[in-house]
Design a protein around this nucleic acid. Structure first.
Lengths: 149, 149
DNA sequence: TTATTTGTCTACTTCATCTATAGAGTTTAC
DNA sequence: GTAAACTCTATAGATGAAGTAGACAAATAA
């Protein structure tokens, strides 16, 4: 399970990606549109700013905007930033590797091998899906709908 | 990430599966062999007993034994029993489905579609891997080693 | 300059879950 | 009856999740 925080981050970034050409977007606009608790979203956006995913401007006419290219920002990376490893156990994580304390022998641990397959399958999906892919899909849907008129 | 509890449960059941023909196995034997805190393992085994995965006998010469056929007990089911859903978000879980509170429209939620793919990939692996598959692999390894002599 | 709008920062809360541990109680075999 | 097992109840510390409150700082425009 991913945390609500990660889901909110994902939704907020996706919202920003869709408004990418529109310039600065208000926190409260995102919060309302995506039904995210406003104060909680604030904290999330600060985190994402530290990670240099978004940029902000203060004061009147201020707001948030995406810094990273949506075509290069993967869902996998966003979730990792907020929640940590995607792997089901630490001992199969690439970026957050840690030996299981209780494991008698990692090399022959059968559970580890299985979990590695799960990790790989998960990462194959999440690390190859970028924010831009969603906006494309939405554009396609809009296009299809237009064609049906 | 799966919990330690789930990992312990998996290791304990795997241990029991390997000793399946040996009859009753002591909690403390499992705890020592798999380096699981003994009292914690006790609690886990009680849970698994309630779920009718294992059986126990009290008193001297007592112990635990697997009730379910290891060829029909999947890793996916074991993890679900202890941790709940395998899905990364509730709204794509089959057995633990729940609508996301903040979701504006589930039918068009792009994150949901992506997470559904993750769920399916995970379940494809974990629901088709059974305890018996591990004991087979171990047997194979033993066989191979014997061949090399 | 001042009011308003916006993000920033610090601190706190509440609640749940994880990961255990302690110890008395019960059952069974010998 | 006693030792060896499992069982039941209670507790507890640590951590993190999810959110809230409110003062503060910066930018703009009147």
């Amino acid at each position: 399970m991913i945390s609500k925080k990660a889901k909110y981050a994902l939704k907020a970034l996706l919202y920003l990606a869709k408004q990418h050409d529109r310039g600065l977007v208000l926190i409260s606009e995102i919060a309302t549109a995506e039904r995210i608790p406003r104060k909680f979203l604030e904290a999330i956006l600060v985190d994402l700013k530290v990670q240099q995913i978004v940029q902000s401007t203060r004061g009147k006419n201020g707001g948030y905007t995406l810094v990273k290219d949506p075509a290069q920002l993967s869902v996998g990376n966003i979730i990792r930033m907020v929640d940590g490893p995607l792997a089901p156990v630490h001992c199969v994580s690439h970026l957050y590797y840690r030996k299981c304390e209780e494991c008698v022998d990692e090399a022959t641990c059968e559970i580890r091998l299985l979990m590695k397959r799960v990790r790989d399958a998960t990462c194959d999906i999440l690390d190859t899906t970028f924010l831009a892919d969603f906006t494309k899909v939405s554009a396609l849907v809009v296009e299809e709908e237009a064609n049906q008129i």
